[in-house]
Design a protein around this nucleic acid. Sequence first.
DNA 1: CGGCTTTGTTCTGCGAGTGGAGAAAGTTTG
DNA 2: CAAACTTTCTCCACTCGCAGAACAAAGCCG
Lengths: 395, 395
Amino acid sequence: MRMTARPANAHQARLLRLLRDEGPRSRAELGDVVRLSRSKLAQELDLLVASGLIETAGLAASRGGRRSGIVRLSPNLRFVAFDIGATSIDVAVTNGELEILGHVTEACDVRQGATVVLDRALDLLGKLRDEGLIPQVHGTGIGVPGPVSFRDGMPVVPPIMTGWDRFPVRDAIGQELGCPVLVDNDVNIMALGELHAGLARAVDDFLLLKIGTGIGCGIVVDGTIYRGVSGSAGDIGHIRIDDDGPICACGNAGCLEAYFGGAALTRDALAAARSGRSPYLARRLESGAEITARDVAEAAAAGDPEAVRLVREGGRHVGQVLAGLVSFFNPGLVIIAGGVAGLGHTLLAEIRSVVYRRSLPLATGNLPIVLSELPGTAGVVGATRLISDHVFSAA
Amino acid sequence: MRMTARPANAHQARLLRLLRDEGPRSRAELGDVVRLSRSKLAQELDLLVASGLIETAGLAASRGGRRSGIVRLSPNLRFVAFDIGATSIDVAVTNGELEILGHVTEACDVRQGATVVLDRALDLLGKLRDEGLIPQVHGTGIGVPGPVSFRDGMPVVPPIMTGWDRFPVRDAIGQELGCPVLVDNDVNIMALGELHAGLARAVDDFLLLKIGTGIGCGIVVDGTIYRGVSGSAGDIGHIRIDDDGPICACGNAGCLEAYFGGAALTRDALAAARSGRSPYLARRLESGAEITARDVAEAAAAGDPEAVRLVREGGRHVGQVLAGLVSFFNPGLVIIAGGVAGLGHTLLAEIRSVVYRRSLPLATGNLPIVLSELPGTAGVVGATRLISDHVFSAA
DNA sequence: CGGCTTTGTTCTGCGAGTGGAGAAAGTTTG
DNA sequence: CAAACTTTCTCCACTCGCAGAACAAAGCCG
């Protein structure tokens, strides 16, 4: 009876994913969902119990006859998530149902390089382990802020992750933790988080727009992440808005990120503070504090007109790009997420207004554009979803 | 022994698609490709022969021992393609291997409405039938120039197809011809044509950019057409290029189609002719001829500077939109097709230049951008591919 | 308590598919 | 030209996955 067992066939994999997504279920209810004979279902469940992946948990209420036995994922199952952001690390541990049991966040500059940052992440995991939360790790999902070769489990020519290019993240962490590991782009794992626990649960094709230090887009086609041929799909930060816009770090002019996103917003906010156009931000600057995107959000919430104008402008530019993507991709849902999503409804209203005006009526007719309802957890949930999909699949 | 048989299981379907794509094959060679025991393979092939879908065709050359029997798709198989364009109808008939046996084209304005245009298409099919090319029709694929509800087999709120909205094209033609019918967007079927017979044969994820009366984009994900949630995916003609560009028929300003595409190019060519900026086009206009996109192509080929400038400008605008799509979608190939593709290498060079400059290096690093090598036939081949995939699938 | 319903378990049988044994057909070698 | 080897085809027995029937166990209801 090994605990590191994998499902032996597609039926077992299906049952595990069902128990993960729907929680404990009686054997009879499972029989209603999966098209299997009662004998076959009982046989596979018995094998899963014997393998230690699931266990029995008493009897369900009667449905008019004999009470059916409940099964659930083993409470000893643990998945680990590392969500590496540009300026932060999130580490979380979940049970088999992907419920977060422990979650720590720490500021950390990704440019310190792969070894430093990953060591820090492992330290944080050690803290959670010390709390006794982790009898054993069954899989680890990792998100990093840049393009990833999913097949190789490593970043490829990432623009902001100095010292990470082709570092074998998957293999290094797999060695360290002795469990299956998958690595993906941080935006992709956020999209998976929304697919698992957020507003996208019933949607097959959707976009997740993440506006933070950078601007990226997670693409879900038919319930699975679309990564493109080199793993860079969704990298929309440098889509052109205007030929004579601000110069971008990438060398071109008028990129979306040159207009909006962490650096651009800080730049504009600082200018507004210095010129005095924004009294709120000017006071902030005088008090000696650094001006960040968060301050703009507060200023806008406080009604500072220049801050509101900045957010509106940003929303307009994001909307212009998103409108094109909606026409092209015709998604069933668009979710706005990321640090700057704290700018909230002012931003959302502006984005909506542009998209609904500029995209095809057929594409926008039934298209919700919403803010993420998973602030801070979409990434880690998505990371565990990624690896659990892998672990809960036929060997 | 019915000729309208369908494969009875997934094995038979697989074998039929193999014979369609690779041509006649010996039983022994088939055994090398499909993972089936010799006995099982022989059994399924015998069933297919009995159903009339395939037939034996002599013996293959020896591979060192007994000669193996060759099988091929029945030469009586026929697929029909209707490729309805904005201003033309193409009707073609193919054999089971999707080789074109007969092909007729006729100018026809799609705005005459569904019944008129489809009757005309059926007339043209009648001509081919009179030539004795069509013993029986096993399936028909139809492409139309507008968004389609693939599930319902009908156009939905198509902008340029007056009199077609929700007309049950699939069911009407199915009734008329007594065979399976599928309807899709004309750009999607061109993409399928490239996937079957063109440069995209070895590529899983690619874009087909069609520049004609309108501008559209076929999206292939993992070897299958992506249609979006309402069937309008790829409708990129109204993506914004500039806020203060020409007013578009859609009501917004600065759409791609307002800059380039059939109507815009004709407009600009006429202006160039009238103003005398283009001597070539001016002569053309004086001779009483109508000025069309084709004239611009000829003028550019003849070295008329203003015509060349028009093509370059157009290519630049197309490239600006395509660059964004490439960053977002990260395809493995981009094919440029459509009537205006006659503008050829001038256009292609300009598009390439913009895309390679403006898209992410990771996305463009190994990205061929090429002209279609299937001038005039991509649509009809794709239409028959669409329906043959359906007919050659397990019932 | 007795009949009815639901659930769990055992057993038999079916159909798909594999792989081996030969027969058939060709090639190569002495 | 015959013998030996190779490849292909056909037939058949056997395995495996699975469904469904039959039966046993457990619970509801009057």
